[in-house]
Design a protein around this nucleic acid. Sequence first.
RNA 1: GCCCGGAUGGUGGAAUUGGUAGACACGCAGGACUUAAAAUCCUGUUCCAGCAAUGGAGUGCGGGUUCGAUUCCCGCUCCGGGCACCA
Length: 804
Amino acid sequence: MAQYNASEVEKKWQEKWEESGIYKVNLKDKKKKKFYNLVMFPYPSGDKLHVGHWYNYGPADSYGRYMRMNGYNIFEPMGFDSFGLPAENYAIKTGTHPSKSIATNVEHMIKQLKRIGTMYDWDKTVITSTPEYYKWTQWIFLKLYEAGLAYKKEAPVNWCPSCRTVLANEQTQDGTCERCGSEITKKSMNQWFFKTRDYAEKLLDYKGLDWPDKTIAMQKNWIGKSMGIDISYEVLGLKDKITVYTTRPDTNFGATFIVVAPESEFVARNFEKFKDKEAVELYVEEAKRKTDIERIAEGRKKTGVFTGLQALNQLTGRKMPIFVSDFVLAHVGTGCVVGVPGHDLRDFEFAQEKGLEVIRVVVGPDGDNSPIVKAEQVQEEAGTMVNSGFLDGMEIMKAKDAIMDYIEEKGYGKRVTNYKLRDWLVSRQRYWGAPIPIVYCEKCGEVPVKEKDLPVELPDNKDFKPSDDGKSPLSKIDSFVKCKCPGCGGDAEREVDTMDTFVCSSWYYLRYPCTDVKNKAFDSERVNEWLPVDMYIGGPEHACMHLIYARFINMALRDLGFVGFKEPFKRLVHQGMITKDGAKMSKSKGNVVSPDEFIEKYGSDVFRMYLMFMGPFTDGGDWNDTGITGVARFVDRLWKLMNFEGEVKDVDGLKRALHKLIKKVSEDVEKFHFNTALAGMMEFVNLAGKIGIDKESKLIVASLIAPMAPHLAEECFEVLGGKGSIFDAAWPKFDKKLVVDDMVRIGVQVNGKVRGDIEVAPDMGKDEALKMAREQENVAKYLADGKVVKEIYVPGKIIGFVVK
RNA sequence: GCCCGGAUGGUGGAAUUGGUAGACACGCAGGACUUAAAAUCCUGUUCCAGCAAUGGAGUGCGGGUUCGAUUCCCGCUCCGGGCACCA
């Protein structure tokens, strides 16, 4: 028997697969059920594939292979998210134009990806930075624009001074740039947005989705729905009313002041009426200048200035002074809040700072109603109303309804729903992205490019670095900027901003099955057949970005009649992160582990299996290579087993073990528990190594390992005389009768402590089982200590005695 | 601060409608083979006591429910993730 030579075998099968085209999917095949097995596509950096890529793609492919063997027509494409900052920054660093570096990097990455031994159908790949792709990204922009879902407005936006571009809310982290970590400043700019807020309610509906609870919770939290009421108060001496948003109108009898955001419209509109204009102006200016970091650094300390104006609380007749303070955010609700210091921590802190009166209108369940409030007492959720007129004695939830009805009746306000979700800022002042297909005409104003004129090609500019003035580099290229108006044909200028790369990645799953479609973004009939994606695998870091954007785009396309389904991804699984010495792998930290040396030494199958064996797929873990020898040994033992010839010592035992294994591996792979599937395989191989194995069982073992070690399995299949590919063979079925043991070993407990065990049939009667248990010498010893007051028998599980 | 996870041998991890904790693997120790080493194979391996049989302790900490708790409940500690002055 020859030693198993991984590198030779793997090379051989990769070549065979390529030659035979076994993984080329026939999208029109209707004999088999379709299965769209998708993994989030990478951005092509110049670096090698690292352990994290393998950790992600290996198991994802194993799942696809498992489904293939279960009779599905598998569509498993792979592509490249090649627009955006990573690619552009790489190009800047190396001094090569991104279109060039992308081409080489993609080619390089495909080569590396092929070494994993996946089933990707490379005929169906997408590269988002190619005109044939971004043409359709622009088309989607136009469709949203036509539908009124894309708009431009002047707004304070997140500006990263280092990347010299604006960022979507989702791309900032604690006031820093998600990419480069620089401090973000606020800048008022004219920017393009998609109306994600219009879809907030639809995005909150997860019906029919098999997604991790955690991801859904994160999205819900991000969308942040709250139901409350807008209340308008008369401002003394002004015609203008002030409208506040609150989710706690039940506490309105305790309202003693009003606070407005520095950037709020109320401030702009009534500035002239303020008593100390200078002080307000100074405060507003200061607030605008502050970065998020500075605001975070200040913590909860409240500042603010009095406007000199007062509003009238209709419920109490109380005059409420109006302040300006930066703890109120302009974009939340109406940008104005009513201060109820007795029942809101922030209001309480502000009241303390300004010496304002605190009134308590809710008594907690413990009856506490002290006028001096401690921070911990402010936010009770349950309680009864006091000092609140007609609300007195009501539970807060009831009072909330009652007061809202009252306010609406009286015309003081109106119920509203609010969302934390902001509209998606999609324009970027960077070169490497899809140009936004809009032109500005002196006569016609903002005009969309005609569909037939797409793509608006990204010029092959030599100077693609972001410019110091913060304008898109495209603004410097006259040949790009100067154009004719699609409306009147007169002189016009192009939009010079490019699209956020998340726009590209929010629809690529629709393009994969339609890469041959030339005259449209995708063929509706085909996507309706092949989508939604049945299994989507990728990192949890995309929970509130890509996964919200893609759902939004898909829903919008559905509402516009282009696709027939609401949700793009039916089942979602997140892989865990692989760290090195507890830290995220990154080039700058110099802790990136390359798979290459392990592939060289052990082969791709062993490496893939080791990553799977480390622990549950969704957990990730810290990289450590010490255990890989265990998997390598397993492969050697399995290979030896395949070459075993001789008598099987325990035919029945082998059969039972094998059928249990089929059950276990099937269930485990289904749940992405590859670690325990492999443990089961190891156990069986160890057993069969002792008692021998027959040819039929060998074939089953080869099938079971096939999803996880595709090259090894093919080789085994061939050695065993199989024709063609093992991936065209059916997944083994287990015999139900063979997976139940006819004898099991169960424990015998006395007062909860294990004192022995007996071997019984799982369905043995209680009396007989108890009799056997009593006969155990050690058990008898403990039973003799007293009187048996209780006997417990759980068939197949446990026998227990309680002795007193 | 709020929400969501997690904590099990020297290490990665297994086991939960409550039923013999530690599967599988690494490492370690001993043995076989070898002139020797590597590789391979066999045996042992939660801790404490004991030659052993066996007994005691044991799943982050403190309580509780139960014949029986890694699993359920209450109160903490630590670690990870998300959100964060959202009114």
